[in-house]
Design a protein around this nucleic acid. Sequence first.
RNA 1: GGCCCCUUGGUGUAAUUGGUUAACACAUCGCCCUUUCAAGGCGAAGAGUACGGGUUCAACUCCCGUAGGGGUCACCA
Length: 492
Amino acid sequence: MNDKTPRVRFAPSPTGYLHVGGLRTALYNYLFAKRNGGKFILRIEDTDRNRFVEGAVENLIDTINWVGLDYDEGPNKDGETGPYFQSERLSIYKKYADQLIEQGDAYRCFCTTERLSALREEQQKAKLPQAKYDKHCLHLSKDEIEKNLSEGKPHIVRLNVKEGENVLIRDIVRDEVEFTREVIDDQVLIKTDGFPTYHMANVVDDYLMGITHVIRGEEWLSSTPKHILLYNALGWKLPQFAHLPLLLNADRSKLSKRQGDVAVEDYKAKGYLKEALLNFVALLGWSAGDNEEFFTIDYMIENFSLERVHKAGAIFNIEKLDWLNAEHLRTKDKSLILNMLKEELKVSKYKDLQLNDDFLLLIIEAMIERVSFVREFVDNSPYFFERPSTYDESVIKKRWKDDSVELLQKYVEKLSALENPIKEDYETALKQVAEEAECGAGRLIHPARLATSGVGIGPGVYDLLYILGKEEVIERIIEALKVIPEIKLKIS
RNA sequence: GGCCCCUUGGUGUAAUUGGUUAACACAUCGCCCUUUCAAGGCGAAGAGUACGGGUUCAACUCCCGUAGGGGUCACCA
C-alpha cells in the first residue's frame, strides 16, 4: 500500500436498493479515485442482522454496475484487503475490541436494554441537556466482570470516552469542526450478538483497507469524533475526511421516499440514462467552476476536486434531470438509441409487432430532437405503431374545417399517382393541392396529421407521412374521412 | 432540548485567495421559425447575496450577533 496512492471506498449498507444520495457519494468517491490515480473500493456494511433484506446485496451491486462505477476491489473483485463483507470479518473486529479493553479504552457493559431505556427516560425527565450512558459498568470490579462472564451474561463493548481535550475534525469540505468530549457518548462498539456497530467496523476496516480519504454524507459528521477517538486509541493515523452535503426534498428536509423516488433503480425503470443521472447527481453539490453543467463522465473525472464541493444541501429537482436526460440522449449514437427503443418496445404492447430497423431508425431520426426519453417514442407516439382509434376532439374543433374532407381527398388522389414517393414528394404533393385550392398549406397539414395520427402534435408532418408510407397514409386518411366529420358534427 | 453544520433569484450552480451593472443553466413568460411541437433561435421577468451590526477607501467574499433550515443524539447504518 503506497502512501501516495489514494484509496477511497463506498460503503453502503444493503437496505434493499441504492439511494440516489448514495449514488452521489459513490460517484464522488469514484471521481476522486480516478482523478488522483487511486483505488475505489466497494465494501458492504452488513452488520445489522435484524435488517437483513433478501437480495439486497445483489441488487446493490447490479445497480452500481449499471451506472458503471467500476470498483477496483470489492465483492467479486478480490483485492488484498478483503473480505469486503463486514459480516465476514467478525473475528477482526473482536481482536481490536479486545485490544481496546486491554488498554482501558473500552469496557464490557452488562446493562440490560431495560436499564438503558430507564436511564434515558430519567435523564430526559431531569431535563439533562443530553442523554448519555452513565459509565455504570466501567466501575465493575474484576470479580464482578468474571462472574458475569462465567454466567454467560450477555454484554456489549463500549468505547471509554475519557476526559481530555476537544476533538478536532479536519474536513476537506467543512474545514475545522470541534467537539468537546462531554458531548461524546460511550458508543457501543460490539453488540450482544458479537457483531460490531458501524463505528467500530468502519474505523477498523478503513484502517485495514488503507483508506486515505473518507468521503461520506454529512449525517456522519456528528459521529466522526467517536471515530477519531478510536483511531487515536488504536494508534492509527487519521484518514482525510470529507463530509458531503445532503440531498433534500423540495421542502428542504432530507430526501425521502415519501416525496418521490429515491432509488436509483426507479430512475432506471423510468427510462433515465445513467449518464444523465450521474451528471445530475454530480451537479447537486459540485461544479467545475466554469459554468458548464453538461458533464460526461470523463469531464467529471478530469475536473473533480473535493475542494469545490459545496457545503449546503441541494434540493433534488427533477426538472433539471429531465433536461439533462434529453441533452445526453442527443449525444448518443443512433444505433445505441435503436437498441434502447427495441428494449422499450419489447416491454410495450407492441412487443409482437415485426418492426424492421430501418423503420425504427426513421422514427428515431424524426423524434430524437424533440423528446427527453426514448420511452416517449413509444408512449407518446403510438401512431407509429398502430392506427389511431380516436381523434383528438380539441384538434378537430380547431383544425378541421369545412373543406378538410375535399382537400384530403384530393391529396389522396395525388398520392395514389406517386410511385415510391420520397419525403419531399409528400410535401410537393400537399403544396400542390393547397395551391390548386388557393389556400395555405396549413389548411391541409393539420387535417393530414390529425387523420393519420389522431393527435395534433408529433414530428414534422412530412416526416410522419413518409415514415408511415404511401399505402398506410392513404388508408388512414380514408378511414378518418369516414369518422371525423361525424365527430365534428357532434361536438359543434 | 444539547451539540454540530448550512444560508447567492422558484431550483441547481458561478463570481480572479475583498474591487463585476452579481454570471450561467433548469423552470416560467413572450416573440420568431418549421403553418404541428415536446426541439431550436431571440428576448423578458426574477436575487443585491437570510437579517443586523462591525472591519475596510471598498464586503457575496473577513469578524460578531440574531433568525431560519438541516443533521445528529440507538446493541441502524
